[in-house]
């Protein structure tokens, strides 16, 4: 288990209990969304999970709490008053995490490129807008691939292209065996990107029913250069991915039945392995024979490219 919280509670001094009796488990590949009103204790829960705040009651165990585990933390408000440039700041943070200077610079450069930081890597931190500062905050948490990535309201302030990049980063972190926890007050957004949603209210944390309609999604893939080209991911390889329920071969196409909540991670893994996505379809709830038939599936929503 990556992280296991047992009967965790938190209060400051003799004040009211901000959180009580929180039981929570995180396994590698989990993406957990925490939703709740402002001031409900979301941030406190995140700080406890990240190991920044010591719980008043209960225990926090697991491999993510061990010395040397890499925990990335992205605060909701990243104030960078320093005169450092984004690149210099990230290089410092990379070195603090134990990277050699050259590796830190390289990682920082690629992350800033991917997130499209306005003003470039040599923009001083204090000149950055909220959205761009948030990108630097995100990049510093990813300098070393995190075992546990904790993000407080990561979607606020980011532009559309950074939204896509962030979604990709979350899915990749989970696909690489890390766990992700993020908060947002918009439940739809949380459901789109998470494998589980927890709500915080009155100091209690409760797990919502699994997000999505429950019915698996069918993904149709072909491989550029022909179906016989050996790839890293093939029929057995796909079955090992979390969320893949079944794989069938239809001529040149592979048909994957994928758990609704894991589609993004599976698609990402497939695309990276040179597969091409032909269609992503959501079959009718009952029964689900769509996997047997390719293109004209009897579905309400079909997207093909």
């Amino acid at each position: 288990m990556l992280l296991h919280c047992e009967a965790v509670g938190k209060r400051y001094g003799r004040g009211r209990w901000i959180l009580r009796d929180v039981d929570l488990d995180l396994a590698p590949g989990d993406v957990l969304a925490v939703v709740g009103a402002n001031g409900s204790g979301k941030s406190t829960l995140l700080r406890i999970l990240a190991g920044l705040t010591r719980p008043t009651a209960g225990r926090r165990t697991g491999t993510a709490t061990a010395q040397g585990a890499s925990v990335g933390y992205v605060p909701d408000r990243f104030t960078a008053h320093e005169r450092l440039t984004a690149m210099a700041y990230l290089t410092h943070l990379g070195r603090i995490r134990g990277l050699p200077t050259a590796t830190a610079r390289d990682r920082a450069g690629r992350l800033l490129d991917r997130l499209a930081l306005a003003g470039g890597p040599d923009a001083p931190l204090r000149t950055l807008s909220k959205g761009n500062a948030q990108k630097v905050a995100l990049a510093q948490a990813l300098l070393v691939p995190p075992d546990l990535l904790v993000l407080d309201e990561p979607w606020s302030g980011l532009d559309a292209s950074a939204h896509t990049a962030l979604a990709g980063i979350l899915a990749e972190t989970a696909a690489a065996g890390g766990a992700v926890v993020f908060t947002d007050h918009r439940e739809a957004l949380a459901r789109t990107h998470a494998t589980a949603v927890h709500t915080v209210a009155d100091g209690r944390v409760t797990r919502r029913a699994d997000p999505g309609p429950g019915a698996p999604v069918v993904v149709v893939l072909t491989r550029r250069g022909g179906p016989d080209l050996p790839g890293v991911l093939d029929l057995p390889g796909f079955l090992d991915l979390p969320g893949v329920l079944a794989v069938e071969r239809h001529g040149a196409e592979l048909h994957l039945r994928v758990d609704r909540s894991r589609t993004d991670a599976v698609l990402l893994a497939a695309l990276r392995d040179d597969w091409s996505v032909q269609a992503v379809t959501r079959p009718a709830p009952e029964p689900a024979p769509a996997a047997a038939e390719p293109a004209p599936a009897p579905t309400p929503r079909t997207t093909a490219r």
């Binding site: 190991g51 920044l52 933390y73």
Partner: peptide, 15 residues
């Protein structure tokens, strides 16, 4: 460092 950034540094240094 203000409290949010101290949290970032705490996570980066490992405690």
């Amino acid at each position: 460092d203000d409290p949010p950034h101290r949290a970032v540094l705490t996570a980066a240094t490992g405690g």
